[in-house]
Design a binder for these strands. Structure first.
Lengths: 362, 362
DNA sequence: TTCTTCAAAGAGACCGGTCTCTTATTGATT
DNA sequence: AATCAATAAGAGACCGGTCTCTTTGAAGAA
């Protein structure tokens, strides 16, 4: 049964109605599953629909109902296992509630994020989940909120935006991780993050517009200072935005005269690259360099030594934020909720005492 | 400026037209960027649109134009780095051409895949990219094709379906990998795949409905047989569908009396789990077990030893299939193309000669 | 038998855009 | 000055559903 026509005009309710000898309204009632129809007519319409291979046009349906059944998700980087796992959590929760997910990547760039939000709103998604890449410019998020569409924030809170938010205690867990390093005797600890700032050099917290990372750096510096470490901020390194950039940053950190004895990596993608650079330079973990990273990525347990990690409940993070949003979509009037999920540390083998050479020099 | 109304009815073309004192048609011409309008009127309309904060309803737009600007993508498992990288390639190509991507996960289950396809067609995507989880039941894919919507296949070809397809030479590369193991002296080589079949035990190629995997197993068995290995199919293991299942399969393979001396893993997720099990059982790579896996996942280079991998051009795979589809969307009348991308093998440290104990017993 | 009541089916507006067709205005041509 | 063409704006149908309102018809009550 070959088709020569390149475009088969799709079968509509009217077509089915005509075939079944009923009015459009009646056919629509059967096909749309609403209203009251007698059993005989229903059977007729169904038969006609099957014969014609009718497929509802969800677009038209969405337009009249105002609901699309779609949740829009804007994440920083889908390739980062952190996000892909979170998205999995979102998808599972969404599917369970009968929603679908449309995904957009911001590449952690605010202009792309804005365009993505605009697009998703244009597509009339029922609600949005966003990992805001900046806390500075959130006008587009305000717009969503104001347009009456529910918005929920994932992994990054915005103090000024009172919407459902699911995060972890970034500051607290960064403090715990840093304390592990300090307790092991480290005094020269680097913090490496993908977040960048003007000038690419860290000066103060005010430069950091990604809330989760700001919290982490804050926790990191607090513990360092409490331990009497002098100017710990000189070891905060920004701009590990890609594997190549991360290698550059790692090389710079590891080749300097005052090489740190430990590194805290802000995510597993960065940590992996740092680990590679450490190896390439002939350094050993943890003898020469101790390493802790955020996110218990799957590879961290198979390296030699395995890496000590901060285990964020990533899947649950995604699942929870989706559930919160769906609750709102169903008309829950409760005030915005800010969920903070518990986090733990898996101590493995990548932390040891600082190497003597460096300790003596310091 | 607090809004008490929970639902702000959105601004339409008519609203803008009224505000600008022009007809709906004229406002639409300006806002939609088509037709001819004088500069003064254009400015008026734009000003009104800005003042009212007009946002086009893409749904309505799609409905009349018939184009949604969306490419639907159905993949097996978004969490698998193979797919997330391929999706990245698709997204990049799509964005470059002005298309957006809506993603659905099939979990490699044919019924979910069918539902996803139906949904995406309902949403009136302009075209679809699918990694068909089965070559047996492809009626839903035929339907897409017949409905006049372009379809392109990623990573898995279907001989019966004449559509644009991008794959690698799975059979050939599996042969090369197997030969590396055979040349190293191995005679007992296991092949572990996520694909499952009735009875969960491999009998013959006819059971395997995932084309890429069937090709690989075919290549694997061919080389084994050419090398005079007796009944190599007894080492083909199916059903490594999840980390837990993979552990079960790996345990079974490694604890049997005729433990293989080498394993070829069908993807990196499986390989990682197998690697963990090998370690847990106190075995060494490559002294006790040699290991090769499909897909150069990032972790494979940081293990000790690093893993020998089959490097599939995953990103390019996604990019190419998207480009093929987009070409078709733009009306390219050329016959369906079947692209086979080149693949290579990175020989690292996970292959060695078989351990004596086993060789003697065999 | 006539009137009421209610279920079931039909008619047609509507959602927010696009697009064709018609009308009005302007400038050029003879 | 009259005709014509070209340009700009307006009117309204249309896409494929949903949904309200109206009509129809048959059963039950008086």
């Amino acid at each position: 049964m070959k088709r020569t026509a390149p475009k088969t005009p799709s079968i509509t309710v009217s077509d089915v109605a005509r075939a079944a000898n009923v009015s459009k309204a009646t056919a629509a009632r059967v096909l749309g599953g609403y209203g009251v129809v007698s059993d005989t007519i229903r059977a007729d319409v169904m038969a006609a629909a099957k014969a014609l291979d009718y497929r509802p046009n969800e677009l038209a349906r969405s337009m009249t109902t105002g609901r699309s059944g779609i949740i829009g998700v804007v994440v920083g980087d889908i390739e980062n296992p952190f996000f892909s796992l979170a998205v999995r959590g979102i998808s599972d929760a969404a599917r369970a509630a009968g929603f679908n997910v449309i995904l957009a990547n911001s590449g952690e760039r605010i202009d792309v994020e804005k365009a993505a939000v605009r697009l998703l709103i244009g597509k009339r998604v029922d609600g949005l989940i966003v990992t805001p890449s900046e806390s500075r410019d959130i006008s587009h998020l305000r717009d969503i909120h104001r347009s009456g569409r529910p918005l929920a924030l994932l992994d990054r809170a915005l103090p000024d935006l009172d919407v459902d938010t699911v995060t972890v205690d970034d500051r607290g867990i960064a403090m715990r991780a840093t304390r592990i390093l300090v307790d092991a005797g480290h005094r020269n600890i680097a913090y490496v993050t993908a977040v960048d700032a003007e000038g690419h050099e860290y000066r103060d917290l005010g430069q950091i517009y990604t809330s989760s990372v700001r919290e982490r750096i804050d926790g990191f510096l607090t513990v360092c200072r409490d331990a009497g470490i002098d100017r710990p901020e000189r070891y905060v390194r920004l701009g590990a935005t890609s594997p190549a950039e991360t290698r550059r940053v790692a090389d710079a950190v590891l080749s300097g005269a005052d090489r740190p004895t430990a590194i805290l990596a802000s995510d597993s993608v960065i940590a992996l690259e740092i680990f590679k650079v450490i190896r390439q330079r002939g350094l050993r973990v943890p003898e020469d360099i101790s390493l802790i990273t955020f996110h218990d990525a799957d590879w961290t347990s198979v390296t030699t030594p395995p890496i000590t990690v901060i285990d964020q409940p990533v899947y649950a993070l995604g699942k929870s934020v989706a559930e919160l949003l769906i609750r709102r979509l169903k008309g829950d009037p409760r005030p915005a909720e800010r969920l903070i999920l518990p986090t733990s540390i898996f101590e493995r083998g990548s932390v040891g005492p600082p190497s003597n050479a460096i300790v003596k020099r310091a």
